[in-house]
Design a protein around this nucleic acid. Structure first.
Lengths: 235, 235
DNA sequence: CAGTGGTCTAGACCACCAC
DNA sequence: TGGTGGTCTAGACCACTGG
């Protein structure tokens, strides 16, 4: 069972990556070249590459090729650190790009989740975040602007938690988090520049202030290979 | 880009599953049958099925066929509930099977992680856990038996936390958790009865007692579609 | 423009499963 | 034993990337 052709390819590249012969961010040979090397068809080569992708060892950029996955960042949601902080603390370079920003009336679903009336104005913010120039995360956020007058005029590519702290003296600590391993929906995949159907990590976050008032609703789609989650439970 | 043949198949079954025409646990038609229905080859059909699998909507049993994924269980690591408890509380039927149990000297790696001397005796426990008779989780645990004399003679298919509480009056609360989305390694996949390379969730857990003494080291591999993680952070 | 990955065809053989 | 999924061949055309 383990003695398949695609497994040979997997082990070959797995070895090269472990031994750092192929370095993080480096490009693999083309599928056709690999096929010639191993005397196998592209179907078989792609099976191997897709398995390596599922392992998180390599990733693809749409129609550009296959690349060695850089180390994942560790995300500790309880640590109260912003994306910019924990990414840079781990030796990577974070950056953020705003895709869309609009104040809109809350849909029924969003209003219910936020505990506000349907149609109340919320700030919708759609951002793409990068680690070392690689897009790793798509964010869709809904923010209750009742708590944050004038926030729509600020630079919203910066860290929100920093902004809340500096401008509004607000600090959210309480939150509900939910994680689910799934594939990237078409839109998120497109935003990340990869084919849809790739594995991803879906994070849903609700930030509270004053006990149980929802300040922010956050939907995140991560590349599955870009992040580890770490949590310390202490009494 | 979105207008591919395999996407038609995906949407077809995605719809049937959402509308409950195909029910949880139900079997899909064979790949060849689907191919005839849509006038497509098996390669294309399998592309669609693999995408649905990545979404978590369907799963396969090795050489048996494709089935509709049952609802996922929600795992709240901070809630201090045993597997048996939180699974049954959510309306499912948990069960556990012991694959291997042995007292052995700790390897260097395990000893370091547990803060004990290399070669100290540890109880290695290898279990498979089921939800509604579907294998969802493989556990490999290393337990410091210095704290638990005679534990190797107990029934180790039961809940460990129950056993610790009843027999040793021990209760662990503090733990480190780490989650990583990856593919199932060959052995874990075999234990779960599925092809290796399938997506999975890797959980590493360290349970402490008396502040910083390691009672138990736990490596888990979950089917990625069988579990959600939920965490509440409260100050 | 040459080369890439993305999609797809029309077959094939095998190990394994249910009957 | 017939049908299943797992693996694989030897091609093809397309959209897009990079030079």
């Amino acid at each position: 069972m383990a003695d398949t052709h695609y497994r040979h390819i997997q082990e070959h590249f797995s070895y090269l990556i472990r031994k750092n012969v192929l370095q993080a961010g480096g490009k693999l040979p083309s599928e056709r070249e690999i096929g010639e090397q191993f005397n196998l068809t592209r179907v078989t080569v792609r099976q191997a590459l897709q398995n390596l992708e599922a392992e998180g060892l390599i990733y693809r950029e749409n129609r550009k090729g296959w690349f060695v996955t850089p180390p994942a960042v560790t995300y500790n949601p309880a640590a109260q650190l912003s994306f910019n902080l924990y990414v840079s603390e781990q030796g990577f370079a974070p950056s953020t790009e705003k895709i869309e920003q609009v104040v809109e009336p809350a849909s029924l679903k969003i209003a219910q989740k936020m505990g506000i009336k349907k149609g109340s104005p919320v700030l919708f913010l759609h951002r793409r975040r990068f680690i070392d120039k690689r897009p790793v995360l798509i964010e869709r956020m809904y923010i209750n602007i009742a708590y944050l007058p004038g926030i729509e005029d600020e630079d919203l590519t910066q860290s929100l938690s920093q902004l809340l702290k500096n401008k509004y003296d607000l600090c959210y600590r309480d939150m509900d988090l939910s994680f689910k391993s799934t594939s990237l929906p078409e839109e998120a995949a497109k935003d990340l520049g990869i084919a849809s159907g790739q594995p991803g990590l879906h994070v849903e976050r609700v930030n509270y202030i004053n006990g149980n008032q929802v300040l922010e609703l956050d939907y995140e789609f991560w590349r599955h290979d870009a992040v580890n989650i770490a949590i310390e439970v202490r009494e």
